[in-house]
């Protein structure tokens, strides 16, 4: 049986709107006008136990709103949610013993106290007895390598250290599901990589189901087996990451700069997106032309001064997804 079941979920926000000008301000004071915004539109999906699922989409797509409804913080306008067999709204407290949440941009640790104190507090909140708590904290300390700064006030930790503590803190009560909302936001490449490894480890060791939202294609590629793409409150895609990669992450961007003037004539599979006299930006369809071939072709031209190969940004992939709907079945 799926661990999370969502069917025909909707969330409407009502916001006040005001037209320009003083007269409108007065009018709004007497008779406010509301506008309804549909943040989540009729979405349905299921998550199996032990899955690592990515929930991706641009800003304002409804990712956080969905997470907040799944964890019982927001009331849905309509639709049904079952998490671990419970209705999150009606059984929020009961459910909270079995789920953990990390909101990358907010902190659950006490700012001026060392993480140990926050762990002790969370242990008490989740009714964990002393010896179990100690064992669990030791385990997490080892796994997340927190030993060096467990006794340092949180305000003195680096962002990477803090996020590790945040994730550890949300795992104190050994939850069945971990919700991660932008866990790697603002982190450097090395730390990002480390956090991803830790998440995968946790999933393997304890079978924790992971529900992750992110902007970062890296998070999705490296961590998740399945991805749901959401935009304007609607699910656009629900696919294994492998398929997503094959369909959409098959584009690479090559930026090249030459020492001498070059006139490029692209082979098949390569599109010139921008060109100057001394350089160009090319996009390569790796299904038609491998990176190897593309590089050979460029080097053969001679006079390459600088060359970078990049993944297209997620925003671009998402826009590809929108414009190439027919490719998807």
């Amino acid at each position: 049986m799926p661990i999370i079941q969502v069917s025909k979920l909707n969330k409407l926000y009502r916001t006040r709107i005001k037209e320009e000008g003083l007269k409108a301000s007065f009018r709004a004071l007497v008779k406010p006008v509301y506008k309804e915004v549909q943040a989540v539109k009729d979405i349905s999906f299921t998550v199996e136990k032990g899955e690592i699922l990515a929930f991706i989409g641009p800003n304002g797509a409804g990712k956080s709103t969905t997470i907040k409804m799944l964890t019982g913080i927001l009331h849905p306008t309509s639709g049904e949610i079952t998490v671990l067999g419970l209705d999150p709204i009606k059984k929020r407290q009961k459910l909270s013993y079995h789920i953990g949440t990390v909101f990358g941009q907010k902190s659950q640790l006490w700012f001026h106290l060392p993480p140990t104190d926050s762990f002790a507090l969370l242990g008490a909140i989740y009714d964990i007895d002393k010896s179990t708590l100690k064992k669990r904290v030791d385990e997490l300390t080892e796994c997340f390598e927190l030993g060096d700064f467990l006794k340092t006030p949180v305000r003195k930790l680096s962002l990477g250290q803090r996020i590790r503590c945040e994730i550890a803190a949300s795992l104190i009560h050994t939850p069945d599901i971990l919700f991660l909302d932008e866990p790697t936001i603002g982190l450097d490449v090395v730390i990002k990589q480390r956090i991803r490894e830790l998440i995968i480890d946790m999933n393997r060791k304890e079978g924790t189901t992971i529900f992750l939202t992110s902007h970062d294609t890296g998070d999705v590629e490296k961590v998740c087996k399945r991805a749901i793409v959401i935009d304007q409150g609607q699910i656009i895609l629900d696919h294994p990451v492998k398929k997503l990669k094959y369909d959409y992450l098959n584009k690479k961007i090559i930026s090249v700069r030459f020492d001498l003037e070059q006139h490029l004539k692209a082979p098949s599979g390569v599109t010139i997106e921008k060109t100057g006299t001394m350089g160009a930006r090319l996009s390569v369809d790796t299904r038609v032309c491998s990176i190897d071939e593309a590089m050979r072709w460029l080097i053969a031209k001679g006079g390459v001064a600088d060359l970078t190969v990049q993944d297209p940004p997620l925003e671009e992939i998402i826009s590809t997804i929108f414009t190439s709907q027919p490719e998807v079945v």
Partner: peptide
């Protein structure tokens, strides 16, 4: 919005 962190706790 950090109240979100404090709502889904067992207290």
């Amino acid at each position: 919005g950090s109240i979100a962190y404090q709502l889904n706790r067992p207290y």
